[in-house]
Structures are given as C-alpha cells and as structure tokens.
Amino acid sequence: MSGPNTEYDPVEVTPLRADEVEAMREAALEAIAAASDLEELKQVRLDHAGDRSPLALANREIGALPPQARKDAGARLGKARGMVNKALGERTVVLEAEHEERMLVEETVDVTLPTDRAVKGARHPITMMSERIADVFVSMGWEVAEGPQVEAEWLNFDALNMGADHPARTMQDTFWLEPAEAALVLRTHTSPVQARTMLTRKPPIYVVCPGRVYRTDEIDATHSPVFHQVEGLVIDEGISMAHLKGSLDHFATAMFGEGITTRFRPSYFPFTEPSAEVDLVCFVCRGAGEEDGHTCRTCRGEGWIEWGGCGVVNPRVLIACGVDPETYTGFAFGMGIDRTLMFRHGVEDLRDVFEGDIRFAQPFGIEI
C-alpha cells in the first residue's frame, strides 16, 4: 500500500470521487435486486461486497490520501458499503422465504398415494421350518448335528449298509463329482451326518440332522434335484421301537397340532432293521377320510398321509461306525422338510418354494 501523499489532490483519486462511489453503490444495489435465487445472490455478494469488490478496493486507497481528506472519503465509502450490506441482508431474507415456499410446493408428498418404496424382505420358509423342527428336538434334550454337502462315498453309502451294487449309487440317482477316483458325491440324504456323529462321539447319542440334499430328480410340482431333509438318531442302551414311536408322535403333534399321531407300515431300508414307513393322521379330516361329506382331497380318503421312513439302526451300521451292537441299540428316522412345509401351510407346488419369488416368502414373515 502506498504511503500518504500530502501534495496529491484527493479529488483526482478516481475510485474515491463521490460520483464513482455513487456508481459503485448503485451497481451493487441493482445486482442485488436482480438476483433471483440464493445462488445468484451469493455471487453478487462476492462481486460487490467481497474482498476484491470495487468498494473494497476503493477503501484501500484511503491510505494514500493526505490526513485532511481521509475523513470525508472514509465516511462516503462507509455509507455506501453499509447500504450494500443492508440490501444484501434484506434480499437474503426475501430469497430464503421464496426458497422455502418453492421447496414446500416441489417436495410435497401425497401420503394418500401407494408407496413406491421397496417392500420388506422375509426369511425363507425352509430356513424357518428347519429351525422350528430343530427347536422341537432341542427342547427334548437332543443336539443339532451338521455335516458337509460334498460327502465321501463311504459315508454316504458303505457305512450305511448300502452295497456296491445298490441302485442308489447309479448316475440316475446320485450326483458324482469328478474325478471319479476321488469317490465324492453330493450327499443324497443327511444320514452321513449320523455316521459322522457315531464315529466321533461315544453313546449316548441324541441328535437331529437338518440339511440340504441332492438327487437327480426332474423338477415338477413334487420333486426337485435339490431338497431338504431332517433325520434323527438315537443310540443308547435299551432303545426300542416304542421310543421311536413316542418321539415321532411328539414331533407330529408339534408340527401339525394336537391329536395328530403316526402309524408304522413295514418297509425296508438297508440302514435300519426292522424298518417302517411313517404315516400321519390326516390333519384336515383327522383320519375320517371325508370332509364336508366329500372325499378328503388331502389324504384322498385314506385318512393317513405318508410322511417319511424310520426304523431300528441296523447292527451292521453300528459296527461300521464303531458302536458295540451288543451294548447299544438305537433308532433313526428321516422326513422331508419341504414336504412338511407343504403339508403344514397348504403349498401345492414345490417349485414355489425354490423359485425365489418374494411374494411367496412374505406371508411367512421374519420369525426368528
């Protein structure tokens, strides 16, 4: 900044002349009045009231005036800058009010319109059914056991008394993994989990094994190459078919309500002897075979619905898994979780369970 010059005529310092100050003030006021929104007013503030504005630069020239001229020039510039700042404040209030009114109009929400927000998700019903089943047996003092879905051939077949020529081993029933010499399969049932449990624990054993399994089935309303099973295993001293029947009756009641019991029909499974098919009393007609005077559509008039398989653990399986059959006996059972879900909730097509449509899962909620 230049020092005082007592010999320089202050009238000749152009930015400080009264007409020049008046012009700068009028230009600023006009720009302020012309600003149509807060963004434009922000730029006007920088141009006419900022550190590099004409009035601010003129104010710096006061120091170059002789002492007797500074008072008048300072008063003139101070008054002009005060008027500009006052105009800026008033225009800011007006523009802020206009902005708020405009926002209220542009951002108005009609609460009577249907929402376009994403709907809430839901836990998959198979997951919830698996957990519900597990809870039934945990409340009885059992444990939940798990195992890998890629399983060794020996655990999936040999340990369960399924011979080398058993038809379940063929490509028509089993997904085999390459290379063939690895002897690995996608497990065809959750029974290998039972074998692993017997190999790693000492009796008494009370476990339930829910999980995903794989078979080379065609997809239709009742079949899928990927489905879910739950199997139970008990190994202890003095275990009989009576214990099996009582456990399954309790399971059926927990799933389908009071009064639902089971019956056994003789059958054959290589890993149990004796073996039986498990039927449920029809939960619609309660075993009557009729509903409202017509044949029950659910059980087709039989009064019973096939549910799964069961039996006393074959001694050969106990020996293969390192359990002494002279000391211990046990029982095992297996049911389809998908089938149980379909029975319990009236699902008519298994494909609905696996297609991933949120509209199917939503009615089941997010039960935890």
Rank of each mutant, 00 (worst) to 15 (best):
I239W: 02
I32Y: 03
V278W: 13
G74Q: 15
V323S: 02
A56G: 10
V138G: 01
S130R: 15
E237Q: 12
G232Y: 05
E131L: 12
G78D: 05
L16Y: 04
V93T: 05
F264S: 08
A254T: 11
S267D: 10
E367G: 04
A75C: 03
A31Y: 02
A118I: 14
R286V: 07
D51P: 03
V347W: 12
F227E: 00
T327N: 06
V278D: 13
V213S: 11
A332L: 08
G211C: 12
F333K: 00
M241I: 15
D249K: 11
P315G: 05
L57D: 02
S191F: 01
L244H: 07
E146K: 13
N314P: 12
D220C: 02
E98N: 13
G89C: 12
G89A: 14
A87H: 01
E39T: 13
R265L: 14
V136Y: 05
L186W: 01
T295H: 12
L350K: 06
L233M: 03
T174I: 05
V111H: 15
W307M: 13
E218D: 14
P15L: 01
V281S: 10
R17Q: 15
V234H: 00
E96W: 02
I205R: 00
P66Q: 11
G211E: 12
A18D: 09
F137R: 08
L38S: 02
A69Y: 02
R169C: 02
L57W: 03
A64I: 03
F364W: 03
L16C: 05
L29V: 04
L318A: 06
A242D: 04
T170P: 04
Y268D: 01
A332R: 00
G89N: 10
V94E: 15
A183E: 15
I126D: 00
K42L: 06
D220A: 02
I239N: 05
G356W: 11
T295Q: 14
T170C: 10
C285D: 10
K202G: 03
